[in-house]
């Protein structure tokens, strides 16, 4: 993976404010700088210590990265992937038709939040595939409400989020596995929202629906 790196401000030549100002202004700047240095510690030494904070540049390596790329085959703690269903969405050689853990309202809410962050730029908040990035020219993805996608199991969606599909890149780096399942559960909820029937509700929910819709 290609990590970014950050250089400290001031390590790159920038428009020198003194060169724009006249000699008088330069004298004022020098005087002001002197006052700053006398009334405060100059921003040196302890401010910029010989140590690496995240993504700080280094002259030591040719690519200037203090955060070294992972050695091939490295597995982070807890990322062994022993639970194949949880990490691949597959059940044997086919996509799983079940979730690896029970779906709760909290999980679906988490899925909605993550969907809106990572998926809605293209898929739109309702899953129709007309997000802002698509409106700016990205290839339009199919709507989640197509019959074909409604009939697929959750493992399929998990796999697409993980590995990508067509022009869509995989999101395994940006979204952890449990969140990818949460997003899958929310996609299921979006699909249901267009195809639910009043008959699916319990009698208690029906009376609540009637009350709330008439009470408007």
């Amino acid at each position: 993976m290609n990590l970014s790196s950050c250089r400290r401000p001031g390590t790159q030549p920038q428009a020198d404010s003194a060169s724009r100002a006249g000699l008088g202004a330069r004298a004022v700047l020098v005087a002001a700088a002197a006052v700053v240095c006398m009334t405060s510690a100059c921003r040196q030494d302890m401010h910029n210590q010989a140590k690496y904070r995240p993504m700080r540049e280094t002259p030591f390596f040719a690519d200037h990265r203090s955060a070294r790329p992972l050695v091939a085959g490295t597995i982070a703690r807890g990322k062994l992937g022993e639970d194949k269903l949880l990490t691949t969405g597959r059940d044997g050689d086919k996509f799983s038709s079940i979730f690896p853990f029970p779906i709760t309202a909290d999980l679906v809410a988490r899925g909605r939040e993550r969907f809106n962050i990572y998926c809605s730029p293209c898929h739109g908040r309702t899953g129709e595939g007309r997000g802002m990035v698509v409106q700016r020219g990205y290839k339009q993805p199919p709507s989640f409400h197509d019959a074909r996608l409604r009939d697929l199991g959750p493992g399929y969606f998990f796999n697409v989020i993980t590995n990508g599909f067509g022009v869509m890149p995989g999101y395994a780096v940006q979204v952890p596995a449990t969140d990818r399942w949460a997003i899958t559960s929310y996609i299921r909820a979006l699909q249901l929202s267009r195809n639910a029937s009043v008959d699916d509700l319990t009698s208690e929910e029906k009376s609540r629906l009637t009350k709330e819709s008439s009470g408007g």
Binding site: N2, R7, K51
Partner: peptide, 18 residues
């Protein structure tokens, strides 16, 4: 992306190292 070299951004919020 082609070369694998990092983009070297300039830090905007640079707290002292302590």
């Amino acid at each position: 992306l082609r070369t694998g070299q990092s983009l070297e951004w300039t830090r905007v919020h640079d707290l002292p190292d302590f």
